[in-house]
Design a protein around this nucleic acid. Structure first.
Length: 273
DNA sequence: CGGACAACCTGGCGGC
DNA sequence: TGCCGCCAGGTTGTCC
């Protein structure tokens, strides 16, 4: 669950249960999950600190402690959540990093593929400084995008996936935004006209905002007491809809490979360059 | 600069 | 049921 909207929902969900909790110990059975510092130092430095705030930058989760920040990147399969001691321990065999908290709680990092990483640093900027702007902030303007596209010959989709260009966009939302803006994923960035750049700017923000809203919706469903899943169909326009009709023109959505990533688009609305 | 590809890891799924 | 190959929402390093 790891693009900007999903990470944002994790940050929001952790804020209440985590804020004010004190760390009382660290456990891990996969030392590589700690990018830095190494296990022993990590454990010594984090012990006794209290969580003060939870935020997000790109796809990074930032958990501010008294004097340092715990940073988490979920990568492909990471999940970060607070749970009561012991409970669900057997149910989640993919927890490779855990912080013991006060009040009988634990912060667990579960990650089947072991791609995710955690950092502990007094200066979070050392981890996040290379990131581009936040797509939902006011710094990300249509004008900024247009200007930055001008000096890039790269295909637009891999450019959108470049976290140094723009923070937080991943494979799903890149496809969604490009379809909405009617731009083929292989179009050179500097070939986009002014109107297209404006459409892309709007589409990116709309897709990410919609993603956040639907995450909220799915969380509400998840809490339904009867356990029913509601209609769990995706809200995506093209992602995962290979062969299904484009929402705008009904032409079947095509799935191809662009920049080594599965890529969905409408061959009619998004004509090849 | 940019594209291609291998690595890092494991689980789920479709096909036979 | 069992095995096999392929796919996966991410990132980084190397090579051309």
């Amino acid at each position: 669950m790891p693009e900007l909207p999903e990470v944002e929902m994790v940050a929001r969900g952790l804020r209440a249960p985590l804020t004010g909790r004190r760390v009382q110990g660290l456990w891990s059975d996969w030392p590589r999950v700690m990018h830095s510092p190494p296990t022993e130092e990590f454990a010594a430095r984090i012990d006794g600190q209290v969580f003060r705030a939870v935020s997000r930058r790109g796809k990074f989760l930032l958990c501010a402690l008294d004097s340092e920040t715990l940073i988490v990147h979920l990568r492909m399969t990471g999940r970060l959540y607070v749970a009561a001691n012991e409970k669900q321990v057997e149910a989640d065999r993919w927890v490779h990093f855990r912080l013991q908290l006060d009040e009988g709680l634990q912060l667990r990092f579960s990650d089947a593929r072991k791609f995710g990483r955690v950092w502990l640093t007094a200066n979070p900027a050392t981890v996040t400084s290379a990131l581009g702007p936040e797509p939902l902030s006011r710094h990300f303007t249509s004008r900024w995008l247009r200007k930055r596209l001008q000096d890039r010959s790269r295909a637009i989709k891999p450019l959108l996936l470049d976290q140094g260009f723009l923070a937080g966009v991943g494979n799903i939302y890149a496809d969604e935004a490009l379809n909405h803006a009617r731009i083929h994923p292989l179009r050179p960035a500097n070939s986009l006209g002014e109107a297209e750049a404006r459409a892309l700017h709007r589409a990116l923000r709309a897709a990410l905002r919609a993603g956040i809203e639907h995450e909220g919706a799915s969380i509400n469903w998840y809490r339904k007491p009867d356990g029913s899943r509601g209609e769990s169909q995706s809200h995506f326009r093209v992602y995962g809809r290979n062969g299904e009709p484009c929402p705008r023109c009904a032409t079947p959505v095509v799935k191809s490979v662009v920049a080594q990533r599965g890529t969905h688009f409408c061959p009619r609305c998004q004509p090849a360059p």
